[in-house]
């Protein structure tokens, strides 16, 4: 199950190119493109889900209800400011131990700034609040951002017809861990159990693709 939709409205973004992040929220009635097209009376809007991990981290302990206990970033970071950002996660010995980082050749400093734990730094040096992390991701992952803006990446919940209700879009970090963005293998659910279904067949593997120079021996 995904996290409970603690939704926040899309934050207003200043510079003009950032406005493109605003998902095409049909908040105003559009002129009907087709005479038969039902005029949409919007009652819903699109919002982007803000995952907890943007403002807090897991402590590794359970709370009274048996849920993983989270602690807000500010809890520690207001008390203590690190001197400098580490070069690699291996240097993290007192806090954030065990952090795994597999995200290309990025460094901690690519996104984080010492003392600004509530914000992230874009490539042009400007700071954005953590919840707008999508802009940061979009700097490199342009095609994904484009697809996301058109509803073709990222998934959603709620209404396809915003004239009838609202919709919650997933945030990048809902699905991707920013430090290890690639999907980790998971076990599939609901294996087919049709009546009389025989055990799966072992099919011989496809021959490997020939390497350069090997194709014509």
């Amino acid at each position: 199950m995904r996290a409970a939709p603690t939704c926040a409205p899309l934050s207003p973004l200043r510079p003009s190119w950032r406005c493109s992040l605003r998902v095409r929220a049909r908040t105003r009635p559009r002129p009907s493109p087709h005479p038969r097209l039902r005029p949409s009376r919007p009652s819903g809007a699109t919002s982007i889900h803000v995952p907890e991990k943007l403002e807090s981290i897991e402590t590794g302990q359970l709370d009274q209800n048996g849920k993983p206990q989270r602690i807000a970033c500010v809890t520690c970071h207001t008390l203590r400011t690190p001197e400098k950002l580490p070069e690699s996660p291996g240097e993290l010995v007192r806090f954030h131990q065990g952090l795994v980082f597999k995200h290309g050749t990025l460094r901690c400093a690519s996104c984080h700034v010492v003392g600004r734990q509530d914000s992230l730094r874009l490539a042009d040096g400007s700071m954005i609040p953590n919840r707008d992390a999508m802009l940061l991701c979009g700097q490199c992952h342009g095609p994904q951002l484009r697809d996301y803006q058109h509803g073709a990446h990222g998934g959603m919940n709620g209404y396809w017809d915003l004239g009838k209700g609202s919709r919650v879009r997933n945030h990048c970090v809902d699905c991707h861990d920013p430090h290890v963005p690639r999907f980790l293998p998971t076990n599939p659910v609901l294996r087919p159990a049709d009546r009389l279904l025989p055990p799966p067949i072992e099919k011989p593997a496809l021959p490997p693709f020939p390497k350069l120079g090997e194709a014509h021996p």
């Binding site: 293998p185 998971t186 076990n187 599939p188 294996r191 067949i201 099919k203």
Partner: peptide, 8 residues
């Protein structure tokens, strides 16, 4: 194969 049953 529709019956795969390993990590995906």
């Amino acid at each position: 194969d529709a019956q795969y049953d390993h990590a995906v």
